[in-house]
């Protein structure tokens, strides 16, 4: 599964959110979008997932043009998680399975298996309010995995967490995604997180977002990379 973004223009009414965005994501790759807050990172992510109709340009997934949500190919983890507050962790993970018509018993088995993978087997019957921030995050990731989509779009999923939980969850997420062989686009405003997790980093300008630079992680000296990114973001 790969994503190609070509000349993407996004606007809300008369207000431009992004201009002439072109980049690609190769199958199995982890790409981060970083940029100053409010620059339009989330809007770009929404357009990739077919949740925001572009004013110009196009997004292709596996060569097919994206015109709306593609639930079997693209799964989302939202910034505020969007978990159902009245549903248990298990029943939250079951949602995409139910929408795909998976029978009840299989749904439950698959949900329990995924909750086990993210280390939440013990709390499957608790509702989100009874879970910690980090646990809620894992439920949202398990739900995204339940859709069996090859592409995962994550919108600042760790924003509400403390640094330690953030680092730990980031590491777990990498292990999990490698196991499942997912292609990932990850929106963050944390430089450190982007460097730690990604293969490539797409740096965006202040809004309306344009592409400032696309950086491949691992080819450069870490200190130079950090200095360069800091320069790009804060100049």
């Amino acid at each position: 599964m790969g994503i190609e973004v070509t000349g993407l223009d996004l606007r809300y009414g008369d207000h431009p959110a992004a201009r002439d965005i072109t980049f690609d994501v190769r199958p199995g790759e982890f790409v981060s979008l970083i940029g100053p807050s409010g620059c339009g990172k989330s809007s770009v992510l929404r357009a990739l997932g077919g949740l925001l109709r572009p004013a110009g340009g196009e997004v292709r997934v596996d060569g097919e043009r994206v015109r709306g949500p593609l639930p079997t190919r693209i799964a989302y983890v939202f910034q505020d998680l969007a978990l159902f507050p009245w549903r248990s962790a298990r029943r939250n993970v079951e949602v995409p399975l139910a929408l795909r018509g998976v029978p009840r018993r299989l749904r439950r088995e698959r949900a329990d298996e995924l909750l086990g993978k993210v280390g939440l087997a013990e709390v499957a019957d608790k509702v989100p309010a009874q879970l910690s921030g980090g646990m809620r995050q894992r439920v949202a990731i398990a739900r995204a995995l339940a859709s069996d989509a090859g592409i995962l779009l994550l919108d600042e999923p760790f924003a509400a967490l403390d640094e330690q939980t953030r680092t730990q969850l980031g590491a777990e997420l990498l292990r999990l995604l490698a196991e499942e062989g997912k292609t990932v686009v990850f929106v963050t405003h944390s430089l450190l997180e982007a460097v730690r997790l990604s293969h490539r980093i797409v740096v965006l300008t202040p809004g309306p977002a344009r592409i400032r630079e696309v950086i491949t992680v691992g080819t450069e000296d870490p200190h130079e990379l950090h200095a360069k990114l800091t320069g790009l973001l804060f100049s």
Binding site: G49, L51, P69, P71, A75, Y76, F78, A82, R100
Partner: peptide
């Protein structure tokens, strides 16, 4: 209703009747 819940449901492939039953009414 939390609009993000509706967006999340749409991203998972829900349409009209699914949305009413799983998000709007509850």
């Amino acid at each position: 209703i939390d609009p993000e819940l509706v967006t999340a449901m749409r991203s998972m492939g829900a349409r009209g009747a699914d949305l009413t039953r799983t998000v709007v009414i509850p």
